[in-house]
Write a protein that binds this DNA or RNA. Structure first.
Lengths: 209, 209, 209, 209
DNA sequence: GATGAATGAGGGTTCATTCAT
DNA sequence: TATGAATGAACCCTCATTCAT
């Protein structure tokens, strides 16, 4: 008669949140490693050290878990990035700050995996892509575009290309994420240096430092 | 003992190639729409208007079909792109030619879907990523890097950033593919304009035209 | 942090064993009727009154189920047979006891089907044949051979043929199993009488009884 | 345009027979190696060096091929064995002749494989078992039984066991076939010695020789 | 007759989801 | 609330059989 020690009593809100977080944590590892379709909820449960059925107490189904993962980890960083263009720094410094934030808070953290998942799986989940477009892109791009436009008008930027396509600023960052997922074993990409080079291409060599 | 030339079976070599192509064609549609895991060979067969079993006469299994898809459609375009940096055009024109080739021969064709599949599924198929790194990246990047380095040395390029990270040249192209896959319905990206803006950011506004 | 003993899941250990037994039971029927290859796990499941997937909770795959069948039903009878030659009965009585055990505990039970399966399918499962050789043959034959050899030396047996080939003792038993599988509807074989006749052939008519 | 040299012209009856024999030959190898269910007609065709479809010009289906195999190879040996008991040799010599024939013409030939196939697959093919019972058992057993009965009555045989169960004479032979299929790699059985020992068990040590 | 490409039914296996305990 | 055994739909792949050439 196999038995197991089980915590009893009404789970407090704190417990609930902790367990939810543990599931999301485990899910991130598994989804990042195998992709959405090839991830087994069995493995997520095992990694989170809970029973398989428990997942369904916290998330409606596999897809809801995936969505929650993206929502949870995508949001916290947004505000900070969105705030940067509002400052009165020169555009170059703003770009540098954005790059730095990306490297430090995304690329070097597990958020990188979430971003990769959005890039690689997002197309299959229109709802998720919509969420991401609204919550992330929609919050970051407008202020950035506004600031870049002003810079183009005042001559701070020689061309209005960046203003029309602010995506150009982060394109190398996304490339780095994909590149390292695909080709790290052949030729790892040094993101920090990449972003530096990128900024130099855009703004010219840094005067001093 | 009289002998005679006899056609083998029903299908001629031409038929065989055509059918193989039809399967690849159907597979591209399905893989692009649903990703590797969620694609049913049943649907591929139906789309190619053949029986399910027939696929296995042409490809060992689902994965082999996927690989063949990438190999078949990735290769033809490589040589052309790899040849461009060898010309004696100024770097700006080379970059422009590469961008143009990308737009015309990849982005506006179904090759775009293959490239997207590599970006989104490649991580799950190390063998495939290896193939792609060798056959595509490995053929295009070295000559490009060489030409960029020379340009940096002769002052044709103000900075050596591009020379150190030639990937920067195509990062916006890849971004465009992913962007349109994810967000086309919200804000379609005009690749041609995007690449123009990108080139202007890198090389300054085109003198005339 | 209050703790409490909780039964794991729905099924107790007893249930688990019962269900496992039910599957093995159903599998025996199906394998015996159709052979390994032609048996459908679907049918096994239906006969065991469970869902097809449930089988895989108890056995890794079809082959593991087949192995388990043999292992489970082959073993229990071995010890008893192996012990017989150790007794100090005359050889004839030992042979008679073996024959009787065979008839009663194998031929008249479902173990007969398992034995038939080993005879008919064993060649295709070297691992299984190896198991059977080690666990069954290897335990029964040596003590039997030893006893027969002694009998040959002491003159209890006129010839040493049986000692050199103890298999001769059971050959008719195996024949009976195969015969009835193949020809029962034409000419059923009375195993008990067959074995009696066999023993008489070997040892002469029984003095009295 | 792949071509192949193909023999043309009306195939003579001789050709037909040769091809039929080649198919049976290949089929024997494959059936013996993998059993009925696991044998692929593809492999049979390849081994016979013909196209898969050709098999169907000679045999209605897989089962018909299997039946033909048994019928073809089982028959030729029957007459000879059935004739032996008719002779006026002593029973022991008849038994010895039968054993010898078995060893030489079955066990040491590919007929052994056919016999093994009947033993292992026959139950699944009632029609085949019926054929075998009629054509083989039915022709061999009656004369043998008759002769053994006479021997029992005249006292040539001490017991009437053999007369009532003539199968006892060949049981060790069948055992040998199965044993070597299952356990040859562990402990090969010397059939000739086995049969000698068997005869000695039945008839006592041979006076001389 | 001979070929072998094509067919498609069939079955083993997986795994998201359910639910009795 | 938590569990994990049970479910069964889904899907890949095989291979006997067919048939246009």
């Amino acid at each position: 008669m196999p038995v197991k020690l089980v915590r009893q009593g009404r789970a407090s809100a704190r417990d609930r949140n902790a367990r939810r977080a543990a599931i999301l944590d485990a899910a991130l590892d598994e989804f990042a490693a195998h992709g959405f379709a090839a991830t087994r909820l069995d493995d997520v449960a095992r990694r989170a050290d809970i029973a398989k059925g428990t997942i369904y107490l916290y998330f409606r189904d596999k897809e809801a878990l995936f969505h929650a993962l993206v929502r949870t980890l995508a949001s916290p960083i947004i505000a900070r990035i969105a705030a940067l263009p509002e400052s009165d720094m020169p555009v170059r410094q703003i770009a540098q700050a954005i790059a730095q934030t990306f490297v430090r808070d995304i690329f070097l953290t597990r958020r990188k995996e979430v971003l990769r998942l959005i890039l690689t799986e997002g197309q299959r989940f229109p709802h998720l892509a919509g969420f991401y477009y609204r919550e992330v892109i929609g919050r970051v791009l407008p202020p950035l575009r506004k600031r870049l436009r002003r810079a183009a008008e005042t001559g701070e930027l020689a061309s209005d290309g960046l203003a029309r396509f602010p995506q150009l600023l982060v394109a190398p960052a996304l490339l780095a994420i994909l590149w390292n997922g695909l080709f790290e074993r052949f030729a790892p990409l040094d993101v920090e240096a990449l972003m530096q080079a990128h900024l130099e291409s855009l703004f010219g060599k840094e005067p001093r430092r």
